[in-house]
Design a protein around this nucleic acid. Structure first.
Length: 865
RNA sequence: GGGUGAUUAGCUCAGUUGGCUAGAGCAUCUCGUUUACACCGAGAGGGUCGGGGGUUCGAGUCCCUCAUCACCCACCA
């Protein structure tokens, strides 16, 4: 009668790990205990977390980010380093305002219904609500950050830092105000930096226009995709070497519709192969034309306003029309006048606002610019001197290439949600600008003169550039300990806008590179490999995943098999795999706790006695080293895989099974601790939960325990366990392949088998392992120890067949080894250890063949008699 | 146009400086009520590493080239 269920009630813990029962309590325990404050005595390890946008909930990609930042933080903390993982939130300037404007639109309002001050207050409240929810989500992901140092990008210390950096640039003459072409979104009413413009292919036409020469010597034909801009033309350019047009250089053409007379200039930017090789120049509305106009001192006529309408500089009949309306009207009029030579179809890229898709108009506007060349130079030098290590390494060269071609940076934004620019303009003298931090006032008096505040705010990235040292507090104790940061973990999309600028301003303001290492993560794509997007509706929310599978499972499932900077689809099967892994750890602990019993007292240095114990301690030692090396090199997926197979294959499948035949306890307790510690950076919740249930851990917290240390093990005894494993594997194989019914394994005079008899019996499902003085049966061929299974004669034919297959497989190997060793170049040129290895392989394989042949001989002899 | 990355088992992907018979998870097939776990155990099948050249004793790994895909940068008025 099986009364197991009735009598065995030993487990204190439920069978399956129910993550959602423990996670929030465990996080609260960590936070309450101050486990995440930088208290380590060793060297510093610091990550300042790229602050997520405070305007929305986190998406699944943030789970990857969280894991990539938290795993190294927990690992280094356990190694005793002074570890700081500093959290924050980003006001995300324009991003957030765009989100908020959508909210307003739903209520039938727009930003024009409010003053900038009113908008700012509303946005602050809007963001405050959202911050709570994503801070909770970061906790749910188990991120071991120090909340006491939490920083928001509009906190006073950050704002003040932005002012000071601006002032320093101002004093050094690196910031200037100038009228330049800016990328302007006429819908949002703000300018963008070059890298914020998104280019998309558009089908349009190429119009060929005839511009008559004033002297009557003919006409020039220019090609354009924007015929309406001809109203603002101030010249025509041709390539200086273009034979077709040399004769016209210096002459004058008369523009149709406006009648303005403009010069023909020679400029090398013209591509002779495109269009007609003659280019109309509209300096106020095209960057190339602007540059050419600067070189040839041509005037700039603004015919498009910031609202996207034709300006008063355009002929009266077009004024007030939108750009597209004007295009239509202009084309009609040109056709009437016979100016259009032909129209071709053309597909080309058009710059768009990345939020609303409005075509970006290059418009002239007074803005603050930073002179980037002097900032880029030291950054390039630092990168070339390899002061920062990149993962993957190729990103470094990419960044250098970017810095070498850098243009000046427009830091003015015409929005409400941001840090006001601390600059004031003399109301009586437009050229007179002063720096002043009294941004809460619109008008100030200085030296009897009246100044008016610049209504613009900084580009978000301007203040973010100081993030590494602004969060720590330049010159503070934290700064001394933690700057430069160890690691900057971020996505590839902000390599240019953020990473590059942090490096430049870190060097400029703080005098050193801001971080030693940069890890670029790939993106979490939708399951089918496409981009996740709200409009398509394939965005995965991490919270239900955590609810169902647990935070640990999400963390491990999402780093599994990922390489830096490579995009990959979200794979729920990996999450499930990791959930099962958590459960495996859980059940190892249940087994161990039961096995060790209430009377167990933990001794960290318990001596191994059995072969299996020596073996598992040896494995634990090796695994600790391998995981450490992987983590030191930010090979997260490899580290996780190493852990997974150690815990599952070595500990659970072999050691735990072996331990059932043994009495011990000390080593089991030690191995359990080792597993929990090694797994902790990856699966903090389940490991800490278990730690808290252990009788001997007292009030301690796993998160602040030390990383496993070496433990004595006898390599020879470990090898004996490997030998037992080999016997078990082959015996299982024979039992399966030949359909044997619970055979017995016999041997003669093998002490090691006597010692492990019970173990092998149970692991293989044999009737027993017995010593005899002699006998016949199926001999195992994979082990040098002489042992055999007793079987009846019905299976011998299948056995002989199997032997033949095995023999030919081994013979193929022998042939390949012999061929290799016969090659003199190989023997002489390959490294010694590789050649020696081949010799060893050859010997081992030959020995195996000898055993197979011996067995074959036994059976051929048996069948002959 | 320039650049980067990818292409390995049915699927999703590892494979660190060139060196054991190329791996994992999932899926498939077979067997299993062994005192932690069916979110489990034992086994099996499955790949000429995108094509073609080359370097090398040796190439999934390095070089050239072609093809396909993805992304980034620059833009042709």
């Amino acid at each position: 009668m099986n009364n197991r269920g009735d009598t065995i009630e030993l487990m204190n813990l439920p069978k399956n790990y129910e993550s959602n029962q423990y996670e929030s309590d465990i996080y609260a325990l960590w936070e309450k205990s101050g486990a995440f404050e930088p208290t380590g005595k060793g060297k510093s390890y610091t990550i300042v977390m790229p602050p997520p946008n405070a305007n929305a909930n986190l998406h699944i990609g943030y789970a990857l980010t969280a894991a990539l930042e938290d795993i190294p933080a927990r690992y280094h903390r356990m190694k005793g380093e002074r570890t700081l993982l500093l959290p924050g939130a980003d006001h995300a300037g324009f991003e957030t305002q765009a989100v908020y404007e959508k909210h307003l639109a739903k209520e039938g309002k727009s930003r024009f219904d409010f003053s900038r001050e009113e908008l700012y207050t509303q946005l602050y409240d809007f963001v405050a609500t959202n911050r709570n929810s994503f801070e909770g989500q970061i906790r749910s992901l188990g991120v071991s950050c120090d909340w006491t140092r939490y920083t928001f990008t509009l906190d006073e210390k950050i704002v003040t830092r932005a002012y000071q950096t601006f002032k320093q640039l101002w004093d050094d003459g690196l910031v200037y105000r100038g009228e330049r072409l800016v990328n302007f979104c006429t819908f949002h009413g703000t300018a963008f930096a070059d890298i914020e413009v998104e280019y998309k292919e558009q089908k349009t036409h190429l119009w060929y226009l005839k511009y008559p020469l004033v002297d009557g010597s003919g006409e020039l034909i220019v090609a354009t995709t924007r015929p309406e801009t001809m109203l603002g033309d101030t010249g025509v350019a041709v390539h200086p070497d273009d034979e077709r047009y040399k004769q016209y250089i210096g002459k004058t053409v008369r523009l149709p519709l406006t009648g303005r007379e403009v010069p023909v200039v020679a400029d090398e930017f013209v591509e002779t192969g495109f269009g007609t090789g003659a280019v109309k120049l509209t300096p106020a509305h095209d960057q190339n034309d602007y540059d050419a106009a600067e070189r040839h001192a041509l005037p700039k006529i603004t015919i498009i306003t910031h609202e996207g309408k034709l300006s008063d500089e355009a002929p009266e009949k077009y004024r007030g029309l939108s750009v597209l309306e004007a295009r239509k009207a202009v084309v009609e009029d040109l056709e009437q006048g016979g100016v259009i030579e032909k129209i071709e179809d053309l597909t080309h890229n058009v710059g768009q606002c990345y939020k609303c898709g409005t075509v970006i108009e290059p418009l002239l506007r007074e803005q603050w610019f930073i002179d980037m060349k002097p900032l880029a130079k030291p950054a390039i030098e630092a990168l070339k001197a390899e002061k920062i290590t990149f993962y993957p390494a190729a990103k470094r060269d990419q960044l250098i290439g970017y810095l070498e071609g850098l243009r000046d940076w427009n830091i003015s934004r015409q929005i409400a949600w941001g840090i006001p620019i601390p600059a004031f303009q003399n109301v009586d003298n437009a050229e007179d600008w002063i720096f002043d931090e009294r941004v809460d006032q619109e008008i100030i008096e200085v030296d009897g003169k009246t100044y008016h505040r610049d209504p613009d705010v900084f580009d978000t990235w301007f203040s973010s550039s100081s993030w590494p040292f602004a969060t720590l507090g330049l010159g503070s104790d934290d700064f001394k300990h933690h700057y430069p940061l160890s690691l900057m973990e971020t996505g590839g999309e902000i390599l240019y806008p953020w990473v590059s600028r942090m490096i430049m301003l870190g060097l400029y303001v703080a005098g050193d590179v801001p971080f030693r290492e940069v890890y670029i993560h790939g993106y979490v794509m939708a399951e089918d490999g496409s981009k996740m997007s709200k409009s398509i509706g394939n965005v995965v929310d991490p919270m239900p995943v955590i609810e169902e599978y647990g935070s640990d499972a999400l963390r491990m499932g999402i780093i599994a098999g990922r390489s830096p900077a490579v995009n990959r689809g979200y794979d729920p099967r990996r999450i499930e795999e990791a959930r099962n892994f958590c459960n495996k750890i859980w059940n190892i602990a249940r087994y161990a706790e039961n096995r060790l019993g209430d009377g167990y007292t933990h001794a960290p240095d318990a001596d191994p006695t059995t072969d299996a114990e020596h073996w598992v301690l040896d494995k634990l030692q090796q695994t600790t080293e391998v995981i450490g090396t992987h983590l030191d090199n930010y090979r997260f997926a490899e580290a996780y895989e190493t852990l997974y197979h150690f815990v599952w294959d070595d500990v659970a499948d072999w050691y735990i099974e072996a331990s059932k035949s043994e009495k011990g306890g000390g080593v089991l307790g030690h191995v359990l601790e080792g597993v929990l510690k090694l797994a902790h950076p990856f699966a903090p919740f389940v490991t800490e939960t278990i730690w808290q249930t252990l009788a001997w851990t007292g009030d301690s917290i796993l998160a602040t325990q030390s990383w496993p240390k070496a433990h004595k093990a006898d390599a020879k005894k470990a090898e004996l366990f490997e030998a037992a494993m080999t016997i078990v594997v082959e015996a299982r194989g024979l039992v399966r392949a030949l359909g044997l019914e619970k055979p017995t394994l016999y041997y003669t005079d093998v002490p090691f088998l006597s010692e492990n008899a019970e173990l092998i019996t149970r692991l293989t499902g044999l009737a027993g392992v017995k010593e005899v003085s002699g006998g016949a049966g199926l001999h195992l061929t994979s082990t040098p120890y002489t042992c055999w299974l007793d079987v009846d004669s019905s299976v011998t034919e299948a056995h002989v067949e199997r032997l033949e297959t095995q023999k030919s497989e081994q013979q193929l190997l022998v042939a390949s080894y012999e061929k290799r060793l016969a090659n003199k170049s190989y023997v002489h040129q390959a490294p010694k250890h590789v050649v020696e290895q081949t010799h060893q392989q050859l010997a081992d394989t030959k020995a195996a063949i000898t055993r197979i042949e011996l067995e074959q001989a036994r059976f051929s002899g048996a069948s002959e008699t």
